[in-house]
Nucleic acid binder design. Structure first.
Lengths: 170, 170
DNA sequence: GGGGCCATGTAATCGGTTACATGATTGA
DNA sequence: TCAATCATGTAACCGATTACATGGCCCC
């Protein structure tokens, strides 16, 4: 149930409408916690009903601007400091590795070299994202940069691991 | 919908009952694709209904032994070679990083050093797992070892990244 | 005999995905 | 005026989680 916390986190920065949040998701959090439009509007309603956010303004076209309440901020801080991630992240990619034995060796190797290529592409996409962002001194810049570094290192690691694994099969 | 492929993959090695598969999950695939008992029995019924596996024997206590059919093997090969993972993996851990700015700096640092410790523990747990397994020449040994290496490298990377990030906050 | 394990299943709930539906406003 | 964008919502479905439920078999 982390989408609610993602929304609280974004609203901690500044008030926003569902539509605003949707766009900010796509350009920042989508890489670590994808969410759909349907889900976000539903979650915002629930958060408002729970008193963690409130409708602070209404604009044209039925636009509703949400603002974090004190309770919402308390919940956000609680989530950050008192709770630990509990679910093991699922990896579709790694699951396949377990079963590569049912393929002829050359196809197994092809899977691994495919992963190398994919890691390279992801790495470059993150570099491009890094260049496209106007990094300031604000908090989301500082921590967003740290999260992006994680992605860069992850893809480097993945490429080297896939190279090692492909070599090992020979 | 990867649980079905995980089950097909395990049954490709040898026939097994739901109960067998449950235990084999816990000792091998649980780190990349956790699944509950309820889910597995349900999925096995669906796979049997779809003709990808069949009940090849019935034992005491209502035990049903499932065997992969040719269609099941074809589906497994198709999944391995023709499809790519599509969902972005969600990371609860990384999501929090984006919002560390709402905490006083020392608490943000504490979160990162906590991640370092956690990575060390995970690393050691994987090393212990590695020692506890009787690595043979069979396919699941070869590829299981490769998957485990991924986990080791991931945790190493994560520890170094967290160290770097904590330093950066100073 | 009885405790522990083997073995399978159902029901309720939840978070997430896909698709559908609707309409207001703005700017070229 | 009309296309693009802003803006919110509903409904159906699916996979995953939690809890509950049941009973047979084996060995001490």
């Amino acid at each position: 149930m982390s989408l609610r916390h993602a929304l609280l986190g974004l609203l901690a920065e500044r008030p926003a409408s569902g539509y605003d949040l949707l766009k900010r998701f796509d350009t920042s959090l989508a890489n670590v916690w994808p969410a759909t439009q349907s889900q976000m509007y539903g979650e915002l309603s629930k958060l408002a009903a729970a008193g963690l956010i409130t409708v602070s303004a209404e604009g044209p076209r039925g636009r509703k601007e949400y603002t974090l309440t004190d309770e919402g901020m308390a919940e956000l801080r609680h989530w950050l400091t008192e709770t630990r991630p509990q679910r093991t992240p699922r990896s579709d990619t790694l699951l396949r590795v377990f079963f590569l034995g049912v393929l002829p060796r050359e196809q197994a190797t092809a899977y691994l070299t495919g992963l190398m290529d994919h890691s390279d592409e992801e790495y470059e996409a993150l570099r491009a994202l890094e260049r496209s962002i106007d990094w300031g001194e604000d908090q989301l810049s500082v921590y967003g940069r740290i999260a992006l570094e994680y992605g860069l290192r992850l893809n480097e690691m993945q490429r080297e691991w896939a190279r090692w694994a492909a070599d090992r099969l020979r």
